[in-house]
Amino acid sequence: MPAVLTPDSPLALKVIPTPNQGERKGGRRPDILLIHYTGMPDAASALQRLADPLAEVSCHYVVLEDGRIFQMVSEAARAWHAGVSSWAGDTDVNSASIGVEVVNPGPDGGYPDFPEPQIDAVTKLGLDIVSRWRMPADRVLAHSDVAPGRKIDPGEKFPWERLHRAGLGHWTPPAPLGDGRSFGPGDEGQPIQALQAMFAMYGYGLEISGVYDPRTEAVVAAFQRHFRPALVDGIADASTITTLRDLIRSRPQPSAASA
């Protein structure tokens, strides 16, 4: 780790270096922006843990409730934030991503709403990062997207639609809840294969088995937390399937500059 960490983003107000980092494997350049919540009681305890060598976790940036941004790892380095995860067949998400931790205690702390100054700061920081690294809109992801069933952050209260309106991330209006065919645990057959193939096409790590198994349920719930937060139950109802279809159809095509 360098003796002095120079902030990569002009939005970072303070540097708190952590030893929990390494080199990006294979010289990877990051093309995923991964959003987390800290899941700890307060900012101080989160920052202490992220800098603790015994914890073996870290991130590139931490955004406090009042909008202050601290940088802990250089964007050129590999922070340890994603854990066991995958996206679009890539199982080394740490090497492929820049991780942003948003201070929020999560469900164990009552899961408060994200304050306005904090979301403003996350949006500005995210726009800065994706612009400099030319990250595709559909690779602005939740921790729960890359680790379904293991992680649920930043959760269904995180305002993805608001970020999208500001130009950050991929979004489509969720299809309304209502009647229609749905699929759930224990269902099998070709419709389940087609459903699993759609999730895998978007990027979720899911085997196309034709069985609505616990992994499929976890992926559906992760998708709902991000893209259809009105009801997170792991059931692939008509609203969930239609929203997924619309996202795939509206997916931005890679440009020559980002290819």
Rank of each mutant, 00 (worst) to 15 (best):
V102C: 14
W87K: 02
D66R: 15
N104A: 05
L64G: 04
V140N: 09
W87Q: 10
G99S: 15
V102W: 11
F70L: 06
L168P: 00
S131Y: 11
V130Y: 01
V84T: 12
I119F: 08
N94H: 11
W133G: 04
L125D: 01
L141A: 04
H164M: 05
E156H: 14
R181G: 00
N94M: 04
V140Y: 14
V63K: 06
H164A: 04
W80N: 14
E156F: 04
V140M: 11
R78L: 06
S95M: 06
E156K: 15
V73H: 12
G169I: 10
S97P: 03
D113A: 14
Q71N: 08
N94R: 09
R139K: 08
I98M: 03
G67H: 11
N94V: 04
E116S: 05
A166L: 05
D90E: 15
G169D: 13
A96C: 04
A96Q: 13
D113S: 12
P173W: 00
A175F: 06
R181W: 01
G99P: 07
E101N: 06
E75D: 07
S131W: 11
D90K: 02
A166H: 05
I129Q: 02
H164I: 01
P154D: 14
H164Q: 12
H143K: 06
I152D: 07
L163Y: 04
F183Q: 01
P112T: 02
R139M: 08
T91I: 03
P107T: 09
V102Q: 07
W160S: 01
P176A: 12
R139N: 10
A121I: 09
D128S: 08
P117Y: 04
E116K: 13
A82R: 08
P136A: 12
R134N: 14
T172K: 13
F70A: 09
N94W: 03
I98V: 14
S74G: 15
L163W: 09
R68Q: 10
D179S: 00
D179Y: 00
D92A: 05
P112C: 03
D153G: 10
A79P: 12
S86G: 11
G126R: 10
G155D: 09
P107G: 04
D113H: 15
I152H: 11
M135G: 00
W133K: 15
D145G: 00
G110N: 10
P107W: 02
I119E: 06
R132W: 10
A88L: 05
P154T: 09
L64V: 04
M135D: 02
I69T: 01
F158R: 05
V93R: 11
G184K: 12
G180M: 08
